[in-house]
């Protein structure tokens, strides 16, 4: 048996994170090449600053400036850096206790080779030239006994209250074995549903298992591209990623022979004239545009048949 179809799925978004006063202060100071910690309930200076004490859970507020030099307290060696990491050449992840801090900060150390770095090694921050108020304003740490670049004068810039954190993750999305014949059918312009062996309901699109019996659907059933509108809404609102200008109709279509409706576009009729029970037929895209997707059907349009009686579809609402 061939493996089910699969395709890349990228999840990417630039999250906008309001920082609140504590993290905001830390990030604002990073922009000025200063590192700021906070004193905990037990007297320890935490870097990065914690908003709430790990022992008492009380809010913390006593900021303490620390150096941008420090000592490696533990490390590992990354020979093949991953996407988004601070360096694209081999580097060390390290917990670094900055001078004046009692806890350690996680960052990268550009040590060249694992033989060059040891626990206890002295490091200093390598500050980025263009700083925005983010942990990445420190490009990485480097092995050195020397001081880091000195702080800049406090600039008249506004304090940092927001940090943008891009997230880009990459997945491979697979269809289920039951979905696969359906998707391959679509590539040939055929509508392949599956029947549950227990309840004999016909699912289109097929599901990995019948949702009421919990067993994989087995028998394939080919359906025509005609059906009935069970219910619908008229979309008047523009939104991100919209394909056609509103107003238009998004309708539940129950294909003849299927036991469950699905949402699709209904065009070729003024929205205000669309009715529950209206008979519709598929309008396919040109064959050369077909792929393993229901988008091969560009939209549905009225077929001109008389409306289906309410009783014929009322149990599908």
């Amino acid at each position: 048996m061939t493996r089910p179809l699969s395709a890349p799925l990228d999840v990417g978004f630039d999250y906008t994170r309001s920082t609140g006063p504590t993290l905001g202060r830390f990030l604002t100071d990073l922009r000025h090449r200063r590192v700021t910690g906070i004193r905990g309930a037990d007297g320890r200076v935490h870097v990065p600053p914690l908003e709430y004490d790990p022992v008492t859970a009380e809010p913390l507020s006593e900021f303490v400036g620390v150096a941008s030099t420090g000592v490696v307290r533990g490390w590992s060696w990354i020979p093949d850096p991953l996407e988004g990491q601070p360096l694209d050449r081999p580097f060390a992840w390290a917990l670094i206790q900055l001078d004046g801090a009692d806890t350690a900060l996680l960052h990268a150390v550009d040590a060249g080779s694992p033989d060059a770095i040891t626990t206890g090694a002295r490091v200093r921050a390598r500050w980025r030239a263009a700083r925005v108020g983010a942990i990445t304003d420190i490009e990485y740490f480097e092995l050195s006994d020397e001081p880091a670049d000195p702080p800049t004068d406090a600039s008249p810039d506004n304090d940092v209250t927001m940090v943008v954190t891009p997230v880009n993750l990459h997945y491979t999305h697979s269809a289920s074995p039951t979905e696969d014949p359906f998707l391959r059918g679509l590539m040939e312009g055929r509508l392949i549903a599956q029947r549950c062996p227990a309840c004999e309901k016909v699912y289109f699109p097929p599901r990995p298992a019948c949702p009421t019996d919990g067993v994989p659907t087995t028998d394939q059933v080919e359906l025509s591209d005609r059906g009935t509108v069970t219910t619908f809404c008229i979309v008047n609102v523009p939104f991100l990623g919209q394909r056609i200008p509103p107003p238009y109709v998004s309708a539940y279509v129950l294909l003849d022979g299927a036991d469950i409706p699905f949402l699709h576009l209904l065009l070729g009729i003024a929205p205000e004239d669309v009715r529950m029970g209206m008979r519709v037929e598929a309008v396919w895209k040109p064959r050369e545009e077909w792929g393993p997707t229901m988008q091969n059907i560009d939209h549905f349009r009225p077929s001109g048949e008389p409306d289906a009686p309410f009783d014929s579809y009322s149990r599908h609402l």
Binding site: L5, P8, T231, F232, V235, F239, S250, M276, Q295
Partner: peptide, 27 residues
């Protein structure tokens, strides 16, 4: 997030529930 092989949402947030509201009104 556009999932491969899955119909994109033509309707936005309220578009999922609006047809069911219509069905309620009718019923």
């Amino acid at each position: 997030v556009p999932t491969p092989f899955t119909m994109p949402v033509h309707a936005g947030a309220g578009g999922y529930f609006a047809p069911h509201v219509r069905a309620y009104i009718r019923r």
